[in-house]
Each structure stands twice: as structure tokens, then as C-alpha cells.
Computed example of a mutant assay.
Amino acid sequence: MSLPMEPTSAAANESVYTDLDLDNCQTLSEDPMGVSLKCKGYRDYPVYFKEGDLRQSVFYGHVDQELIDGAFESFSAFNHINTKVEWRLDDQGKPFAAILRWFIDNPGPDGSSTRASRGEILVVSRVGTVDYGGSCMVALVDAKANPDANEKARQMADDTAADFACGMQEPEWVGKRGELVSERTFSWPEGYVVE
């Protein structure tokens, strides 16, 4: 007697994780106000990191040189990133989105940032590919206001990142948004639009 076959579902997107070690990155440029780095990411998809004025910016993958040199996407408040990157892979094993936790350094009662005063945002970004050199923020999830923040971020990555038009679309906030988060800020190279 044969058993009934289980229904098969389409291959779900998978996650892989990499550590971002800023001490072992290649310095692209440096000045008294900040630094631009190229770091190891997932396979041949690097991570581009910038810091300036106590704010940080991150782009992923095969990114246009214009963006590497002239773009900065961050938050208006002082901030810093976590060091664990979650990459969402398609059914070919290629990354199309990256998820990274950012910390918003709000001042606490004594003026310095504390765990209680610090905001946390899961930032979903599009990963640049050989065919599409844009990388940018796609969705933002307040990690303290949403108990299911990781699931929300993965869902947005899977639903929107692969076709997101960097330079033409604004990233959207998903779920509840508390008071500890900050507004996104960005600076793109003049005339830069990825078609």
C-alpha cells in the first residue's frame, strides 16, 4: 500500500548570515570626518560601509561605482550598525536582499545613549547585481515596537527587494513605529537614477 504524496510547495527563499568585521575591510577613502570601506560579504557580494558625522551607511553587492563614491543613506539621528548581516537568497542561491539591524543613538537621562533609550531598526536593502548596480533601503521595521520584526523584515525582503527601484522609490515603514526610531536621510549622486 502506497502512502499519499505530500504536496510540494515552491522553493522558499532562504537566509544565510555573515559577520561584518569592520577591522578587516579594505579602506577606499578616509578623511578626518569619516571613512569608506569595502568589506567581505556573502561569496562575491561585498558590503560597502561608510561613516561620517557619527552616522553610518551600508550598500550591498555589485554596486555602481557612482553609488560607492557618492551615495550615503542613513538616519538623521546619530546611529551605528550591528555586525550580523542576514542575506535572503533566491532559488538559485543568489542574494537579492540584505537585512541589518541599526541602532539609533538617542540620548538617555544622563545625555548618553543607553539600551533603554536606543532605537533599533531592521533595515531591508536591495542587493546590487551584475545586471542592476543599485543598492538601497527598501523597508524599515521598528524592532522594539514589533515583536515579529524579523518576520516582517523577511516578508518585505521577499515581496519587494528584487524589483525595488533604487533612486526612484522610497523605502516604507512596516508595522508599528515607536518614538525611538529616526527619519531616513540620503544623498545620491547628482542625476543618479537606476532604471
Rank of each mutant, 00 (worst) to 15 (best):
residue 101 R to S: 11
residue 97 A to Q: 01
residue 155 Q to H: 12
residue 62 H to G: 04
residue 165 A to M: 11
residue 125 S to T: 03
residue 46 P to M: 00
residue 81 I to W: 09
residue 162 A to D: 06
residue 117 S to C: 03
residue 52 G to T: 15
residue 105 D to Y: 06
residue 85 V to H: 03
residue 94 K to Y: 10
residue 153 A to D: 03
residue 116 A to S: 14
residue 182 S to E: 01
residue 180 L to T: 11
residue 166 C to N: 00
residue 131 D to E: 12
residue 153 A to C: 01
residue 173 W to G: 00
residue 94 K to I: 08
residue 92 Q to L: 12
residue 93 G to D: 04
residue 145 A to E: 09
residue 146 N to W: 10
residue 133 G to C: 04
residue 145 A to V: 07
residue 104 I to K: 03
residue 181 V to Q: 02
residue 74 S to W: 04
residue 143 A to L: 04
residue 137 M to T: 05
residue 88 R to W: 01
residue 101 R to Y: 09
residue 163 D to L: 02
residue 70 G to D: 05
residue 102 W to Q: 11
residue 106 N to M: 10
residue 148 D to T: 08
residue 67 L to S: 06
residue 116 A to T: 14
residue 58 V to S: 08
residue 120 E to D: 08
residue 179 E to D: 15
residue 59 F to Y: 13
residue 112 S to V: 15
residue 97 A to H: 00
residue 165 A to G: 11
residue 177 R to Y: 04
residue 69 D to P: 00
residue 46 P to F: 07
residue 135 S to N: 00
residue 87 W to S: 04
residue 114 T to L: 09
residue 184 R to D: 05
residue 170 E to L: 15
residue 110 D to F: 11
residue 70 G to Y: 11
residue 169 Q to T: 07
residue 172 E to V: 15
residue 168 M to L: 14
residue 56 Q to S: 12
residue 174 V to T: 07
residue 100 L to M: 10
residue 122 L to S: 14
residue 90 D to S: 05
residue 116 A to G: 10
residue 73 E to Y: 14
residue 56 Q to T: 14
residue 107 P to Q: 05
residue 136 C to R: 00
residue 173 W to S: 05
residue 172 E to M: 14
residue 54 L to I: 13
residue 94 K to F: 04
residue 119 G to A: 05
residue 160 T to V: 13
residue 179 E to N: 13
residue 161 A to E: 01
residue 175 G to D: 02
residue 57 S to K: 07
residue 134 G to S: 02
residue 137 M to D: 09
residue 168 M to I: 15
residue 174 V to H: 06
residue 46 P to K: 03
residue 65 Q to W: 03
residue 128 G to I: 00
residue 113 S to F: 07
residue 138 V to Y: 02
residue 178 G to T: 06
residue 178 G to Q: 09
residue 134 G to F: 02
residue 50 K to P: 06
residue 67 L to A: 07
residue 131 D to C: 05
residue 108 G to F: 11
residue 152 K to R: 13
residue 56 Q to N: 12
residue 150 N to L: 13
residue 119 G to D: 03
residue 163 D to H: 12
residue 75 F to T: 02
residue 92 Q to Y: 06
residue 131 D to M: 10
residue 49 F to D: 02
residue 92 Q to M: 10
residue 62 H to S: 09
residue 149 A to Y: 09
residue 131 D to W: 04
residue 148 D to C: 08
residue 62 H to W: 11
residue 164 F to R: 04
residue 87 W to K: 02
residue 138 V to D: 01
residue 156 M to F: 05
residue 60 Y to T: 06
residue 127 V to T: 05
residue 69 D to A: 10
residue 181 V to K: 00
residue 152 K to E: 09
residue 119 G to I: 06
